[in-house]
């Protein structure tokens, strides 16, 4: 194990895949400039090792970053397209949703679209309305796409590697706040399989299901609740499509209570899908109806007091967990 930041671990994972397979390459804005990536050095130094044909520093042209990745994927390479933030990813929804997600299907399996598109999600301090959104549910709703949202450096590296090796187009959503977070990363290949959740903490009274940065907040909430004598199990889904239903069902069977925590706007979010599914499939195991917590349905505000009012905090997760435990 080696301790490293999320951004460093993911960069290592990309470099390892690029060394393994000469058809893996990356494209996006600022990838080969002095700071090597948007704001967290996610690509620092890769230009020196791999050169400008494989670390392609692009113009601000989201349609073409995404479209070129699709074209290059069907033409036999494995591109990793970086769209910086999910907010900018919206500029390229057409190429992702109308092309990447559908080409294999509408051409009857003549081609695969083995690409990864990195889109950073989540709030940082002061990001305001257009640099803070969590849009994972948009892509979970789109047939043809795989969606991953890792929450630790090891998962960030391991899931990127699995995403690059997958023949499906994978939307890789990394939380901007996680880039600087540290954790142990295995010294071996460290592949993390797509579609497999990780139980962060065992418990018997309540299951909290979450992903990305919110999984860590949920774990913090569980720790606090343990001091009150509550035994809370925390599941980090890691992959949102396909999500690990078996792990969630098994946990509910044990605890009988479910809370789904997400940073994204609650209405129409991915928590709603999990709750609906569990309602259909685990009703007999639930001692009380499942609950969820997510952001209010409004843009992310700027000034700190309003920003904090908007946030899904550990305290709010604790309160919702207590409500679920007491029901």
């Amino acid at each position: 194990m080696t301790e490293m930041t999320f951004a460093d671990a993911v960069r290592e994972g990309l470099a390892e895949e690029m060394r393994r397979d000469p058809l893996v390459w990356a494209l996006g804005e600022d990838l080969s400039t002095a700071h090597g990536g948007t704001s967290a050095n996610q690509y620092l130094g890769l230009i020196d090792e791999f050169g400008p044909k494989r670390i392609v520093n692009t113009p601000i042209s989201e349609n073409t970053i995404m479209g070129a990745a699709v074209g290059a994927a069907v033409a036999g390479t494995r591109p990793v397209a970086d769209l910086r933030m999910a907010d900018f990813g919206m500029c390229a929804v057409d190429e992702l949703v109308n092309q990447a997600a559908k080409i294999r299907y509408m051409f009857g399996g003549q081609a695969r679209v083995p690409l990864v598109v990195r889109q950073a999600i989540g709030m940082r301090k002061g990001g305001a309305a257009q640099h803070s959104q969590s849009t994972e549910a948009w892509y979970v709703h789109t047939p043809g796409l795989v969606v991953v949202a890792p929450g630790t450096p090891a998962d960030g590296r391991g899931l990127l590697k699995s995403a690059i090796r997958a023949d499906d187009p994978v939307v890789y959503m990394e939380h901007k706040d996680l880039w600087v977070s540290k954790g142990d990363v295995p010294d071996d290949e460290g592949l993390v399989p797509i579609g497999v959740a990780k139980t962060l903490r065992q418990g018997t009274d309540l299951t909290i299901v979450s992903w990305s940065k919110m999984a860590q907040l949920s774990n913090d909430a569980a720790e606090a609740l343990a001091k009150d004598g509550a035994s809370v199990e925390v599941i980090d889904l890691r992959t949102l499509w396909p999500w690990d239903k078996a792990a969630v069902y098994a946990s509910i069977k044990k605890t009988g209570r479910l809370l789904v925590a997400q940073e994204a706007v609650q209405v129409g979010g991915f928590a709603a899908e999990i709750m609906a599914d569990v309602t259909e499939n685990c009703a007999g195991d639930l001692k009380t109806h499942a609950r969820r917590i997510g952001a209010p349905r409004m843009p992310v505000p700027y000034a700190e007091p309003m920003e904090n009012e908007y946030r899904v905090t550990t305290e709010r997760v604790i309160a919702k967990a207590r409500e679920t435990l007491d029901a």
Partner: peptide, 23 residues
């Protein structure tokens, strides 16, 4: 590599196919 129901997407994908050829 395909006809297309969305205009201009062939342009951006063509660019990518050319990147693949170059690579």
């Amino acid at each position: 590599l395909g006809a297309n129901g969305v205009l201009a997407d062939g342009l951006t994908m063509g660019v990518g196919a050319a990147q693949a050829i170059t690579l």
